[in-house]
């Protein structure tokens, strides 16, 4: 291997690492606020890429029907629980958030299916269709068991992932897809060609990470979410509703998953079940960050991307083995150095 190849591999690794960063931050965000390890996160990313490809091929993506069914289920569940609590006055609000808002983008896609819209509009519609899926899943699957243990929530997440990949096969079929590139530009940096798509991926990862940083540092909603993650009891005593915080966390996670799906669509061939491996590799990044630290998570995910790129060059069949093997030293190091959160509050 010479310096030129090393440079190409590093750049390649940074581009895929940037996608892992977005997903890993989503993992940490959802886990911190809700204690749920959202295993189907990668599936959401894959569904985004597949939805975008369907729109490009002028097909009606199956995700539209999925949103409609999920919205109907969530609305019925919400109305039933409002009825049981005797607060039927909140029904119009529930209808707006659980039924009308999710159905608007799905309806637009349904009506315009068959016509090729401009790229920017296709991307926007795809993101808008995907966004409501995780919060709706939260309402249907997780909210009824919100007080369960982390382990039970994890088992439910794994089951949800299998359901999602089954649905993926049903909606999109077994063939892999790859969309057209968004940018047709190649830069030469220090003698190494860098594709515009890679620059776009890295730029987007930096931009959205920075946006999240601003959200958590300067908005009351961001601080309330952070507070819920740090201390649930304390947050409830301030009047912060845990379910509302969970919904916002899932919505932000959905946005990150959708963006990573859009970015990955033109560079990787995505199958209905590709999401799991993408999610699992991002999860390694999130573990490096201890499921709490956003900056360490970002560095960890970059590391995973670069390692994967070199491993693929040196020994392609073992690339996943090498990537997942770094979990062992990381977990050892974590278990020696981590201070357990529950010890910190003692006075």
């Amino acid at each position: 291997m010479n310096a030129q190849i090393a440079a190409i591999l590093t750049l390649d690794g940074i581009a895929s690492g940037a996608i892992y960063v977005l997903i890993a931050i989503g993992f940490v965000l959802i886990f911190a606020v809700t204690r749920i390890i959202f295993v189907p996160f990668g599936d959401i990313t894959a569904f985004t890429a597949l939805t975008l490809a369907s729109l490009e091929n002028k097909h009606l993506p199956g995700t539209v029907g999925m949103v409609a069914v999920l919205a109907a289920m969530a609305t019925l569940m919400e109305i039933f629980s409002l009825w049981r609590k005797g607060t039927l006055g909140r029904v119009p609000r529930a209808l707006l958030f659980y039924l009308i808002l999710p159905l608007i983008p799905a309806g637009v896609v349904w009506l315009t299916a068959g016509t090729l819209l401009p790229t920017a509009l296709r991307i926007l519609l795809t993101v808008a269709v995907i966004l409501p899926i995780p919060p709706l899943l939260n309402r249907i699957v997780y909210q009824p068991i919100a007080d369960a243990t982390v382990l039970l929530l994890l088992i439910v997440s794994v089951a949800l992932h299998f359901a999602m990949s089954g649905l993926g096969l049903l909606f999109f079929g077994p063939e892999g897809v790859r969309t057209q590139g968004f940018v047709d530009y190649t830069a030469i940096i220090a003698g190494t060609p860098v594709s515009g798509q890679a620059i776009l991926i890295l730029g987007s990862a930096i931009f959205f990470s920075f946006l999240l940083y601003l959200f958590f540092s300067f908005t009351l909603t961001g601080k309330a979410l952070h507070a819920t993650a740090l201390n649930r009891t304390g947050a409830r005593l301030m009047g912060i509703r845990p379910q509302q915080a969970c919904t916002i966390a899932f919505l932000l996670g959905a946005l990150l998953a959708a963006i990573s799906g859009i970015l990955i669509a033109p560079v990787n061939t995505i199958f209905y079940d590709s999401g799991f491996l993408i999610g699992l590799k991002s999860f390694v990044g999130a573990i490096i960050g201890g499921m709490v630290s956003f900056p360490v998570t970002a560095i960890g995910s970059m590391l995973v991307g670069i390692l994967e790129s070199f491993a693929a060059f040196l020994s392609s069949p073992f690339k996943d083995v090498i990537v997942f093997s770094i979990l062992i030293p990381v977990l050892l190091w974590r278990s020696y150095t981590l201070v357990h959160a529950e010890d910190e509050d003692e006075e």
Binding site: K223, H226, L230, N231, T233, G234, L237, E344, D345, E347
Partner: peptide, 13 residues
């Protein structure tokens, strides 16, 4: 409002 025995502050904030 309740100020609980354990205070329940947001220690990282």
């Amino acid at each position: 409002c309740l100020v609980p025995e354990r205070r329940e502050l947001f220690s990282e904030m």
